[in-house]
Design a protein around this nucleic acid. Structure first.
Lengths: 115, 115
DNA sequence: TGATTACTTAGCCATATGGCTAAGCATGAT
DNA sequence: ATCATGCTTAGCCATATGGCTAAGTAATCA
């Protein structure tokens, strides 16, 4: 198990960092330059650059350089695979809820609790 | 930026691995023992155990030991924060689509393309 | 031309991650 | 009582991640 869905892995990994999520939220308000994105993080430019690189490799943002300034913007469609996977899972999970409830009930009775 | 939402970070990180996602999908079909979960992965037991630990720390699964067998089951509500964050973002992102479109159009004209 | 500004690249460092083997320990079967 | 089963722990290893400083490069501005 280490090949399928590189998209999902890249996306989830990109979203797993608070700094990167904050950057995305900030970009939701409109495009911004690298320096402007770095300011509120308290991190150094190279560090922020790498976070941006991770976001861009995941396809979550796009950037373009105008003069000496690089502007970054979100790519809204990029979250589609994530929504898709989550919806699929939710369907599966909910579809099995009864069986899981039964199972949990049985465990409760037999062991008292977990572990 | 390195403190808020430990939940989301844990969840997204847990979901960022294909093996872990495969385990979740498998568990959607009903609870399973550690050995049964390990089989299809081609990985060794200790390795799978650690994946399970990550999933459990994120709250995505729960496990209970019956005799010498540990059974694992998904925790459906666990995905709620993820759905929540994604929906919030989608709302934000879509709310700004016009502005982003304008921006992209402008970039296209000015630079020809990205970078 | 020269100084700023805004990235960019290179490279170091500590910790985390994902894989493994080798033992250990408790439970169920013989 | 013994042995097999199923997990568990400990610990090693290579690579990845997230942070930094220092030293570029390229575009403005004075």
């Amino acid at each position: 198990m280490a090949k399928h869905d590189p998209d999902l892995s890249l996306l989830f990994h990109a979203l797993s960092d608070p700094t990167r999520r904050a950057i995305l939220t900030r970009l939701a308000g409109g495009p911004a330059a690298v320096t402007d994105l770095a300011a509120p993080t308290g991190l150094r430019l190279p560090t922020v650059m790498r976070h941006l690189a991770v976001l861009e490799e995941a396809g979550l943002i796009a950037s373009a350089k105008e003069g000496r300034v690089r502007s970054c913007a979100i790519v809204p469609e990029a979250l589609a695979p994530v929504h898709g996977w989550l919806d699929d899972q939710r369907a599966l999970w909910e579809g099995r809820l009864d069986r899981l409830d039964d199972y949990v009930m049985r465990l409760m009775k037999e062991t008292g609790h977990d572990d």
